[in-house]
Design a protein around this nucleic acid. Structure first.
Lengths: 206, 206
DNA sequence: CGAATATACGGAACTATGTTCCGTTTAGCA
DNA sequence: TGCTAAACGGAACATAGTTCCGTATATTCG
């Protein structure tokens, strides 16, 4: 019943606290829950009991359900947080490495993301409305992140121009899925190949 | 029976009674369960409660678990039965239609199969050991079925030779998955295209 | 045909897990 | 410090998978 019409919150992102400030303990518990859930999901899969997550996070189940009305909301929140982390890594890497290396490093980071989230990816197709917005969010955050790295790299003449971030993201995700049945290094070497492909017709190379 | 694991008798099909004959009521209940489960899964998805299936089939839950020790065993059995039905359709169609039409009709039949089983397909990746043998069974039954139609059609000069059943099966499955996000006719028209492609270089055409 | 017996049946009971409820605690504020 | 809205915790409830066991019956055998 009730349904997810009132699914606001959690995603304000840009840091506006419209009404009353969130209580510090609430914020703390929320963080602890997300961090713990991530770890538990990694260990026991997304089907891990809510009780276990609550206990390991040091809160009661009531608190879990206060922040995440449904179990799937918690999963979705964890997923979003991971998407954010992966997207944010782009600017960090851009600051630390040169244009091409930043791109290469980020691709590896993305491989880790996709590989670790295979269980979650399956849940996405379950039809639960809590997951409906995730693909869009995925695109909204990850595509610009990769686009930025592309732009920087091609501006520096390190890679060819005109590469499509979406296609790369999808291709890598497919490769990672297939990689599960093969070896763990398979994906990495294929990504290396893709990157070399991008370099091939670059302004600075030929 | 060709089916992998030693899941006890049940191989009634050709009427062979190995040891003690299965009790008639047991056989009846087994059939009713499989038929009911198929209907319930189609209506409520694979997550439908076992109780509901039992009730609708007119048996107690104990009977369900006697035949299918785990819920996933029931799902797997339904899946196998559908694979069988789809594979058996090949020879039926081959007897009723000409070589090419039989192939075309079967592809449509296969599209229905894949489309209807999308929910089950998701379950396949859950890691439940009950599903482990299904991909192999899928291949074992469907590939020869399609191969037979291919052989007949190419022997009649209706299609080119050398087509790979596996690739076609996989391609159609992919198309159907994508079709879910688009329209219901999309898959059918793409399959038509594939079939025309097979006809293109046929002995009898050029 | 009727008794004997292995087999199967049904559903209550047990367990696990998602979700709700509500009395208690506490952070933030005046 | 005292007040209050917000948050907390976990018992209680609801639902669903699974087990157990007394009862029913198909099949066999005399």
């Amino acid at each position: 019943m009730s349904g997810g019409s009132e699914r606001r919150g959690a995603g304000e992102g840009t840091g506006g606290q419209a009404d009353r400030r969130v209580r510090a303990d609430a914020q703390r518990n929320m963080d602890a829950l997300l961090r713990t859930a991530l770890a538990v999901f990694a260990t026991s899969g997304v089907d891990a009991p809510v009780r276990e997550i609550a206990e390991r996070a040091g809160v009661g189940v009531g608190t879990v359900y206060r922040h995440f009305p449904q179990r799937s909301d918690l999963i979705a929140a964890v997923f979003r947080r991971e998407i954010d982390a992966c997207a944010d890594a782009a600017s960090l890497l851009a600051a630390e490495y040169g244009p091409f290396d930043a791109l290469a490093q980020w691709m590896l980071r993305y491989v880790d993301f996709v590989s670790a989230k295979r269980g979650l990816a399956a849940a996405l197709h379950s039809g639960d409305p809590a997951y409906e917005a995730l693909p869009a969010y995925f695109d909204q955050r990850l595509r610009p992140a990769l686009q930025g790295l592309f732009d920087a790299a091609s501006a520096a003449g390190a890679i060819r121009t005109g590469a499509k971030p979406n296609e790369l993201l999808r291709a890598v995700a497919s490769l990672c899925t297939a990689a599960h049945d093969v070896g763990p290094d398979y994906a990495r070497s294929m990504i290396g190949l893709l990157l070399d492909g991008l370099r091939y017709g670059a302004a600075g190379s030929a």
